[in-house]
Amino acid sequence: MASFRILAVDDDPIFLLLLEHVLRRIGYTDLRCVSSGDEALKIIRSGEQVFDCFLLDIEMPGMDGIELCRRIRAVPSHRRTPIVMITAMNSQHFIEAAFASGATDYITKPIDDIELKARIGMVARLVDERRRGNALEDQLHAQSGLPLAQISFDDPIPVADVGGVVEYLGLENYVLTLGRLKLFGHAAIAFKIVNASEIFLAADAVSYLDTLANVASVIVGTLKTQQFMMAYAGRGEFVCMTARASVVDPDDLKLEIAVRLGEYRKLYEELGVPLPVVRVGEPQAPGFFTRVTPLALLDRARASVRDVVARRELMTALEH
């Protein structure tokens, strides 16, 4: 196993000792433990050690794990570092706030090595894939002077600095935590930049990421609610989970997004990047008597917006 350095934060020394033993049993030996959020931030900000993953207890005196998660996310080098929250079975109501603060996943106390192995294994694979991507990026940059930030069109790239927008993996893990009843109160709605591939080809990586952040902030501005969680899923598509009751008509959303994006027309022209055109899918809500898995709901939302785009293309073709 490649080196995988973990920083664990919990105010209970016995839990930290237990974590150390269980992690060692499943093959993770590079662990640093601290007992408070303040201590963790001091180490992180000093840059004396690089961490590949954070394990944060949610309920700690002083700065709790959710606040610590938010502050770690504000450190530029840790915008994408996996953060796994640790919560008691009694305290699952904290989970939503943890995901909204940028958590990647969570595990419950009391821990068992099977769950820990699965969850940490998932984030270790994620870190490994990113390392391989970074190595390739460095190689390309050295050989050809291509832009430093190498990104893929298909990948769910994290969009930085837009409130309520989290990593796609975080959104998936969040919907998985919703039970059937809670899922019933939600709807998934997808947005697609129809000319994303043109923008991807016309822009360098930095401009493409800026475009995604711009579109994300425009979408967020049209949602008219603070109760949502959105992520970029790749291929120009965003998926948003929101309360079923606060769903807005997709056509109204589409028009408002177009108007707001139109305000940036000149800027896009100067950059030589096509103005993003966004379509909105039909909101997908689970029926009470039909079983839909949480992840299938996200897929259905994406399928719906693709359908909207395809129908629109067909109509344009027929008109001509």
Binding site: D12, I14, F15, L18, V22, E59, P61, A88, N90, K109, P110, I111, D112
Partner: peptide
Amino acid sequence: ARIAHKISGVAATL
């Protein structure tokens, strides 16, 4: 409650 929280976090695993 705080002491109980710490106990419940590890006891079953041990």
